[in-house]
Amino acid sequence: MMNPKTQNKVAIGTLYGVAGLVVLILLALLGYILVSGLPQLSWHFLTAPAKAFLKGGGVGVQLYNSFYLLILAMLISFPIALGAAIYLYEYAKDNWVTTTIRTAIEILSSLPSVVVGLFGFLFFVVKLRLGFSILSGAFALTFFNLPLLTRSIEDSLRTIDTTQREGGLALGLSRWEAVTRVILPAAVPSILTGVILSAGRVFGEAAALIYTAGQSAPALDFTDWNPFNISSPLNPMRPAETLAVHIWKINSEGIMPDAKAISSGSSAVLVLAILLFNFAARYLGKRLYKRLTSA
């Protein structure tokens, strides 16, 4: 039997070791992505179209597709999540209906994204005949995004003091007005942070997309902005492989001679984008909050 003091020392030493090891693993991971990926990055890499069988292709179309899908998915999911969050915050009574609804949302958030993608395939691609398209992908991403975004907005609303709400009601505002005109503006900084963080998740998602937005990236004509033309970047009905899907695709097919270099570069771009989203979320949130409260 060790005496408690020695035991304490050993245990705490071990914990230092464990934490150090974890930091090492995580930093090695980040380091590997950046060290192997950053040298690949160049203007050419970020803008040129991919080459299937030759070296020296870029990820321009995939990068564009990732952003386009992200924006569409956010445009569709934000209003829905906002509405749902407002209902849960303001109107939902504490009864079994609300509990059931909350459970349903929780289930959606815990569904594997591949299941969401398969449903998107079944429903949008096949049933609604949207084919492998930006639109199918955007809907799949919306489903993937809705539960977490709803919860994050509801949490943001709840951080605002309820006396604000009462203040609005006492002026004769309806509950809807009190939430949308008083609580919501005050919660904007925190909502924005949540939206950007969820955007990071959506940006890197691949499993929900391989059978909805598809795994091919037809060349785009960046001078043609008529959404009805097939090569237009805005066309929502064209298949659109994203950067994350691209990494998966070239590694599983293994026909691209420089697949490893392209993957490294793409991984670095994804991680940098996530970093950027993280910093932007913190910075903008703080900035807006300051503007809202400062004299």
């Binding site: 605002i160 006396t163 604000q164 009462e166 203040g167 002026l171 503006p185 005050a186 409260t293």
Partner: peptide, 17 residues
């Protein structure tokens, strides 16, 4: 409509943001 005629001020100051 009624609350516009019967207004209220609360315990803790609650100015809007």
């Amino acid at each position: 409509e009624m609350r516009r005629r019967v207004g209220m001020v609360f315990q803790r100051p609650n100015p809007f943001a």
